[in-house]
Amino acid sequence: MVKNVAIVSLSSGLAGEEYEKFALDIGLKRLEKYGMNVKFMPNALKGIEYLNDHPEKRADDLLQAFKDPDTDMILCAIGGDDTYRLLPYLFDNDELKNAVSDKIFLGFSDTTINHFMLHKLGLNTFYGQAFLTDICERSSEMLPYTKKYFEELITTGTISEITPAEVWYEERTAFDESQVGVPLKEHKCSGFELLQGSPVFSGRILGGCICSMYDMFDSERNEDMPQLCKKYGIFPDKDEWKGRILLLESSEEKPSPEKYRKSLDHLKAEGVFDAVSGVLVGKPMDEAYSEEYKKLLVSVIDRPELPILYDLNIGHANPRCIMPFGIDAVVDAEKQCIRFSDREHAK
């Protein structure tokens, strides 16, 4: 059972802005109802400008959270777009390697890069939810499907099975205090869709936001990001992908089909699709470009025998499950489930 939670802001400092205080209050009350002791790390609430100017402080928070023997779970406040800037402060002198310990690490979006950092050091992590986006959801309660997986993680330390949600929700157009108690518009889910390949496949899952992965190879957003990611060997090489299952989900930017194709092309050039045993793809936010993405996945990957399972409730489209990375998984499209072994979540 998770008792002590440390909240970190590894990307955006949004959690520290005054206009987000009402949301923090919502989230803290919900966590406290679970009997949790919640600690914001020293720099987590210093705001957007400060954390933008001080990536080393964001890195310090992560290191301290891992070193704290009382912390059971490290929960990311939200994503962003520049957590790669923590790399020198975490890897130049083996800082993260020397600090990392057996804790639950949960986050998504730009946090994809942090997941790859921790994978490099042998720690299995959990992808799919964050504090501001999920625990602080403006509806009267956490979204039921999201809540189900969060409760399983904090009570058991892992996730045993993922099945489709019954409904998906349109994204809010506003996030201010006027949205408190306002329900999200919902639509019926049709379940996981097998685009090609065997309905049953297995492996250990790794991946995350395709937009963050794109930025690891393209300098369009951050000029130095590809260079730094290459210097520190953050993206796994082809051999590390052998037998794994790749998870892909797209961001709130709703990348155009052209950019989605470029993202897939980068992964293909790295040999990922020749190595993995299958691909899992999250539902796009508001189902934007969904049909185009399906066609691109099939055409760019160009391996008809490689299983591709589409429309998972993971990442940027609400509601969100939690996906364990590095744990043996069996995907069964016919039974509409992904089952995980009960081995320890961390090595």
Rank of each mutant, 00 (worst) to 15 (best):
K3S: 12
V8N: 11
L14G: 01
A23Q: 03
L24G: 06
D25M: 09
M36D: 06
M36I: 12
N43G: 08
N43P: 02
A44W: 03
K46W: 11
Y50P: 08
K57V: 08
K57L: 01
R58L: 03
D60I: 11
L63V: 12
F66W: 07
I74C: 03
C76T: 06
I78C: 02
D94W: 07
E95W: 00
K103N: 06
F105L: 15
L106M: 01
T112Y: 01
M117C: 10
L118G: 00
L118C: 02
G122P: 05
N124V: 04
Y127N: 10
D134E: 02
C136L: 03
S139N: 09
S139Q: 15
S140H: 09
P144N: 07
F150R: 00
I154T: 01
G157P: 05
T158R: 14
T158N: 14
I162S: 02
E166I: 10
V167P: 00
A174I: 09
D176Y: 14
E177T: 12
K188V: 15
F192Q: 03
S198N: 15
M213E: 11
N222T: 06
P226H: 02
C229Y: 06
I234K: 02
D237R: 12
I245F: 09
E249Q: 13
E249T: 13
K254D: 13
P255Y: 09
P255C: 09
S256K: 09
E258K: 12
S263Y: 04
L267N: 07
V276K: 04
S277M: 07
G282L: 00
P284H: 04
D286G: 01
V298N: 08
V298E: 08
S299L: 10
V300M: 05
D302T: 01
I322T: 02
V330C: 07
E334A: 12
I338W: 05
I338S: 07
E344M: 11
K347G: 13
